[in-house]
Design a protein around this nucleic acid. Structure first.
Lengths: 102, 102
DNA sequence: ACATCATTTAGATGATTAGCTAAATATCGA
DNA sequence: TCGATATTTAGCTAATCATCTAAATGATGT
C-alpha cells in the first residue's frame, strides 16, 4: 500500500502510468515524453516496478513496460472502499484480453 | 493531486484519515493512537491540512480535526477514473449520514 | 570482433522528509 | 495572575529522494 502511494506521489510516475494505459511501451519510448535524463527515468521505472504497478519484458535491445492495471485497481479501490467510497468490489474481469492477438 | 498522494504515502497519515472516518477528533485524541511524539503528529496533521484532506476547528484548548471526505473522494476516484477504474462519477450522496446510528 | 543502440548501475549533490527535544503560544480554571 | 493542559513552532539529525554525468551491461548487425 505504502509503496503504491509513494509511487503515485510523483507526477512523472503518474504520467508514466497514464502513458502505459494505451498499451506497453519501451523504456526509451516512455522517456521520450519527459524532460529528464534516461537514468532518472530508469529510477522512476524501478520505483513503479517495486510497487508492482508495472512489469518489464525484454524484447531485443529494448525493455518493454506494461501497466499492471489490476494492481493499481486493487490498491486504489481497496483504499477508497475502506472509506466507503467508490463502487462495490467488482466480481471478476472478463478474461483480460489485453492486446489483440494476431 | 501530488499533495494528496504525498499525504497518502505515509502509513501514519493514512491511519489518521481512517480514524477520522468515525467523526471529528482532537489532535491529542488522534495522537494517542500513535507511538510518535506530539510534534511529529502535528507535522503529519499539517501535511494532511495542506493536502486539504482534513480541516481544523478550534474548540477551547483543543483543535478538532475532521476528514474532508469529498476531497479524498475527488482525488482518489478522479485518478481511478482516468484509468477507467471504479464507477462512473456519482451524482450526489444521500445526505451524508456520517456516524453509524444504532 | 567491433561499433552501435537501449538501458541500467555507480556515485555524487541538493532538497525534502520523518523523527526527536525544548521552547513558545493559547486557553482554561482556580 | 498562576498553573496546568493542548498544540504548534524552532531547530536539529539521519534517512530518503530526484536529479545529474559517466561508466557498465546487454543485444544486434556487419
Amino acid at each position: 500500500m505504502t509503496g503504491v502511494f509513494k509511487a503515485l506521489s510523483d507526477p512523472t510516475r503518474r504520467h508514466v502510468l497514464q502513458l502505459l494505459r494505451n498499451g506497453p511501451m519501451s523504456a526509451g519510448g516512455l522517456a521520450d515524453h519527459f524532460d529528464v535524463s534516461k537514468p532518472t527515468m530508469s529510477a522512476h521505472f524501478a520505483v513503479l516496478r517495486e510497487a508492482n504497478l508495472i512489469a518489464a519484458e525484454k524484447d531485443g535491445k529494448s525493455v518493454i513496460y506494461h501497466l499492471k492495471l489490476s494492481v493499481l485497481e486493487e490498491a486504489l479501490m481497496g483504499f477508497a472502499q475502506s472509506f466507503g467510497l467508490g463502487a462495490e468490489p467488482q466480481k471478476a474481469h472478463p478474461p483480460a484480453k489485453r492486446r489483440a492477438a494476431t
